[in-house]
C-alpha cells in the first residue's frame, strides 16, 4: 500500500498541478498497485511519518504568504525530518522555492522558508515563461523531460543540492547557470509546472519506483501502454528541436 500525501491543494494548485497526482495514482491503478491518497489542506495536522510520497504544487503570492504562517507553526521541522528520512517529495514551482532556505524579494527583503534543501530564491523582474526541455542529470539515464515553466523567482542551488536536469530549451532555475530543478535524497523539485508527469511517463515511474522501493527494495514497475503519453512527449521534444 503506497501512501500518497497531496500537501496543501487548497493553496498550492496553480494551473493543472493536481494533474501530477492524478497521473501518479492512475499509473498505480493500471498496474493494480494499492494506494491511499490523502489531501491535506492548510490547518489540518498530519503525521508525516505515515506517508511514502508527498506532492506539493505551485501557488500565487498571497496564497504562499498564508502557507508560510502554517509552515512556521512547526510543520517545517516535520517536513525536514521526512526529507532526511528519505521519503519521496515531488515539488513544483512555488513549493520548490519553499523547500529551500530563504527567498529575497525585489525590495531586498529576506523571508525564511522551510529549509529542507540547500538552495535559495531571489525574486526577479522578468517572467521566465514558455515551453522548456531539460535532460536529467540526477541519474545516469540522461532522459529528456519536456514541460512548461512560468516563474519570476531565480533559484540558486547550494553545494549540497544537485540539479534535476540540464537546460536544453528554456530558462531553468535562474536563466543563468543552465541548471533546472533540484535533487536531494528522494526529493525531486522542478520549475516545470502543470501536468509534467503525464507527458513524461519515465519521470513519473521513476518517482513511483523511488516511493515503492522504500518498503520493498526489489520493487519493479510493469511497463504500460504509453502511446498517447509519448506522442505528447515527442511532439514537444521535436517542436523544441531535440531529435
Amino acid at each position: 500500500m503506497l501512501k500518497i500525501c497531496h500537501l496543501y491543494p487548497d493553496v498550492l494548485n496553480l494551473f493543472g498541478d493536481s494533474g501530477n497526482v492524478q497521473c501518479l495514482i492512475r499509473r498505480l491503478e493500471w498496474r493494480g498497485i494499492e494506494y491511499e491518497l490523502t489531501r491535506v489542506p492548510i490547518g489540518k495536522s498530519i503525521d508525516f511519518t505515515q506517508f511514502d510520497l508527498f506532492f506539493m504544487g505551485g501557488g500565487q503570492e498571497l496564497e504562499r504568504e498564508i502557507l508560510l504562517n502554517e509552515l512556521r507553526s512547526g510543520v517545517d521541522k516535520e517536513i525536514i525530518a521526512a526529507v532526511e528520512d528519505e521519503k519521496v517529495f515531488f515539488c513544483v514551482g512555488g513549493s520548490y522555492q519553499l523547500m529551500g532556505q530563504y527567498g529575497i524579494s525585489l525590495e531586498g527583503h529576506q523571508t525564511d522558508y522551510i529549509g529542507a534543501l540547500d538552495l535559495h530564491t531571489v525574486d526577479g523582474e522578468t517572467r521566465m515563461v514558455g515551453n522548456c526541455m531539460f535532460s536529467r542529470v540526477d541519474d545516469f539515464s540522461g532522459s529528456i523531460v519536456v514541460g512548461f515553466e512560468s516563474h519570476t523567482g531565480k533559484t540558486y542551488l547550494g553545494s549540497n543540492t544537485k540539479p534535476l536536469g540540464e537546460v536544453i530549451k528554456g530558462f531553468g532555475n535562474n536563466g543563468e547557470d543552465g541548471t533546472e530543478g533540484a535533487r536531494y535524497k528522494n526529493v525531486y523539485c522542478t520549475y516545470s509546472h502543470g501536468p509534467l508527469l503525464a507527458k513524461n511517463p519515465e519521470l513519473a515511474d521513476c518517482i513511483l519506483l523511488a516511493a515503492l522501493s522504500r518498503s520493498n527494495p526489489s520493487a519493479l514497475l510493469e511497463p504500460l501502454d504509453d502511446e498517447l503519453e509519448l506522442n505528447a512527449h515527442f511532439y514537444m521534444k521535436n517542436r523544441l528541436g531535440e531529435k
Binding site: F15, D17, S18, V129, G130, G194, A198
Partner: peptide, 9 residues
C-alpha cells in the same frame, strides 16, 4: 494562451 496546463483543471 501558450500554457495549456489548465486542461488538467
Amino acid at each position: 494562451g501558450t500554457d495549456i496546463s489548465w486542461i488538467w483543471d
